[in-house]
Design a binder for these strands. Structure first.
Lengths: 121, 121
DNA sequence: ATTCATGCAAAACCTTTGCAATGCC
DNA sequence: GGCATTGCAAAGGTTTTGCATGAAT
């Protein structure tokens, strides 16, 4: 599947539209709805996951490379976060609410290094 | 403002549409676009904030009562999380990336007590 | 022949915007 | 008069769905 190739080739966060463009570069007649349908299937199979990094479109990537995200509310910069960074939160949520977190789906917003003094005390 | 009254009256997470319905109960001619515009203004003024708890519409509430959210991917149950629960993550993000998190905007997904054995070990 | 995935168009969903009309100072 | 706010309708961006065509088994 060309879609899988596109996902493997670019180990990044691609929107459905970007993936569609990538597939269409080789086979221009592929429709965006086909992209969505296949992404849906692949997600049900556990091959890919999607994450929301902000107010725009969702981004898809291979489930094997799943990780958390920090996104700056000011400048939009995105930081990929290794899972260990969520361990404290995971323990707290577990002991407090018996809740097992999946920290990959929604980004954690905030202010990045370059932006957090702009709001300042 | 009727919108503010609606926000104060129901200390919950209301979508723009719910708030619109509430305002329209008293003054039916108020249009949903006015609700969005006023919510926008109130948000710029720091009176309200909105959060995304899932794939549906955003929910608005008073900024004074801001908090984090855990949402179960399985059953949709929502848990309001006191800020202390994010302290470990906040420290980790700060020391690792010099990133100041705002844990209120996007919910943290996962599995609630009732649902996490459904997926199993 | 039946099944299934595809292309296309259209809808659905949530939100924003253009514009004319209304009200206020 | 001028300025801001509203209602309405229309558009916007993202995703889903209905349906008929066409391929594959």
């Amino acid at each position: 599947m060309l879609l899988l190739r596109a996902l493997f080739e670019s180990q990044g966060h691609r929107t459905a539209e970007e993936l569609g463009a990538e597939v269409q570069a080789k086979t221009p007649e592929v429709h965006i709805s086909t992209i969505y349908r296949n992404l849906d299937d692949l997600e049900r199979l556990g091959v890919v996951v999607h994450a929301h990094l902000g107010h725009g479109p969702a981004t898809y990537h291979l489930a094997a490379g799943a990780h958390g995200h920090f996104v700056c509310e000011e400048c939009g910069a995105m930081i990929e976060a290794p899972d260990e960074i969520f361990e404290g939160l995971a323990r707290a949520a577990k002991s407090r609410f018996d809740f097992d977190i999946n920290p990959h789906h929604f980004a954690v917003l905030g202010r990045c290094r370059g932006c957090h003094e702009a709001v300042g005390p």
